[in-house]
Amino acid sequence: PDLGLTQLFADPNLIENLKKNPKTSEMMKDPQLVAKLIGYKQNPQAIGQDLFTDPRLMTIMATLMGVDL
């Protein structure tokens, strides 16, 4: 199971919303991170391994779920 990750990354406004959010806007200036996020739309399971190697993803996930870290 993808634990709902498919829906989190399926939002067509995902990148724009993250660019507008004060907690994630600075991160979204990294083209490699943006490319990763776009890739998760097609393969949400890929985030599982990346969560352990890129701490920014935890902040992004929390933001998408509405959790304040």
Results as ranks from 00 to 15, higher is better:
30 D>H: 02
20 K>A: 14
40 Y>Q: 01
49 Q>E: 14
59 T>I: 15
60 I>S: 00
30 D>C: 02
16 E>C: 06
5 L>A: 10
33 L>T: 02
17 N>A: 07
48 G>C: 09
52 F>W: 13
28 M>N: 00
60 I>H: 01
50 D>H: 08
68 D>P: 02
4 G>I: 15
64 L>A: 05
1 P>F: 03
2 D>T: 09
25 S>Y: 08
17 N>S: 15
68 D>I: 03
53 T>R: 09
56 R>V: 11
54 D>V: 01
4 G>S: 14
21 N>W: 04
29 K>V: 04
58 M>I: 15
9 F>A: 02
26 E>M: 07
11 D>P: 03
65 M>P: 03
20 K>P: 00
64 L>R: 01
32 Q>K: 11
38 I>S: 09
48 G>R: 14
4 G>H: 06
24 T>S: 03
8 L>D: 02
10 A>Y: 07
22 P>S: 07
18 L>F: 02
60 I>M: 03
37 L>H: 00
34 V>Y: 04
3 L>A: 14
35 A>P: 00
57 L>C: 03
37 L>V: 06
2 D>P: 15
16 E>F: 07
12 P>S: 08
53 T>S: 12
10 A>P: 02
68 D>Q: 05
47 I>A: 11
54 D>L: 01
53 T>N: 14
28 M>A: 02
45 Q>F: 07
66 G>P: 07
40 Y>D: 01
19 K>L: 11
8 L>E: 03
7 Q>K: 15
45 Q>C: 09
17 N>K: 09
41 K>G: 14
67 V>G: 07
11 D>F: 02
59 T>W: 04
39 G>R: 10
13 N>G: 08
31 P>V: 11
65 M>Y: 07
20 K>S: 15
35 A>I: 09
35 A>L: 13
44 P>Y: 06
27 M>Q: 03
18 L>D: 00
9 F>R: 02
5 L>T: 08
6 T>A: 15
68 D>A: 04
3 L>T: 15
17 N>C: 05
7 Q>C: 08
9 F>W: 12
15 I>M: 08
64 L>S: 02
54 D>Y: 02
52 F>G: 11
25 S>A: 14
27 M>Y: 12
2 D>A: 14
54 D>R: 00
28 M>F: 02
63 T>A: 13
50 D>W: 03
57 L>A: 02
27 M>A: 06
27 M>D: 03
38 I>T: 09
56 R>G: 05
6 T>D: 13
3 L>P: 09
47 I>M: 11
12 P>W: 03
42 Q>H: 15
51 L>K: 05
35 A>W: 05
22 P>I: 06
61 M>N: 01
30 D>I: 01
64 L>E: 02
4 G>M: 14
30 D>Q: 02
49 Q>C: 09
65 M>K: 13
41 K>P: 04
16 E>T: 06
15 I>H: 02
23 K>P: 04
8 L>Y: 11
31 P>Y: 05
67 V>I: 15
4 G>T: 14
52 F>M: 14
2 D>R: 01
37 L>R: 00
49 Q>D: 11
65 M>S: 10
35 A>Y: 06
67 V>M: 15
7 Q>R: 07
23 K>G: 09
62 A>T: 11
56 R>T: 05
40 Y>F: 11
2 D>W: 14
47 I>V: 15
